[in-house]
Amino acid sequence: MSMLEVEGVSKRFGGIQALQGCSLSVEHGSVTGLIGPNGSGKTTLFNVVTGYARPDAGTVRFEGTAIDNLPPDRILALGIGRTFQMVRIFPRLTVLENMHVPVRRQGLAGVLSGASTHEERARVLDLLRFVGLERLKNEPAGNLSFGQRRLLEIACVLMAGPRVILLDEPGGGVNPTMLRAIAGHIRELNGQGITFFVVEHNMGFVMELCHRVIVMHRGSVIAQGDPEAVRRDPAVLEAYLGE
């Protein structure tokens, strides 16, 4: 059984068929790439998998359980984290405060007590050290550079303890140095057992990092396999050149 299984998912926005019978799977412990021309439905697929959009048809299963119809917070609690193409952080909260938002508390006493316990803060600082943002911990997140915001968003998602993370164009608007740093973090986290499903346009990044690549075009999967084979696939070349 694959970790994540998408089966025959369709999603329509008015006149646009964003997803059309899309089926794919992501294996436990892999770094799986998702590529395809702009508008091919990659972000929509991520939205469906993480509960930010409801599919019109088809099912999504996470470790065998159907999750299409669950709200985003339930899906995150099950272990699927994600980042956004346009980066969603809380700009007027400090870096530290951002990191505490995904930490859940049970009961009234937990909610009414301080925003940060010692154990929570220790985990936050560990993760901030890991992504290299510790020195900026008291800075409003809106003051960070775009690349730093991407790192913060990834660190925030890690606070929720996900087993698989969907990254939507982590290299978008980020310089090559920062992208290399992000690739390093992904490799290290993958070594610790976290599965990654990554949309990215930078082919060097995809070829170097991904065990397997899935190619989408007009809402469906047109090719998949190891990175080299996919790169040489004529259907893939045509999809990109046809745009």
């Binding site: 930010y52 917070d73 995150l76 609690a77 969603r88 809380f90 938002v101 995904p102 859940r104 925030c156």
Partner: peptide, 9 residues
């Protein structure tokens, strides 16, 4: 960001 907050639980 209300929706993101909701998504984080």
């Amino acid at each position: 960001d209300e929706d993101r907050a909701l998504g984080f639980g």
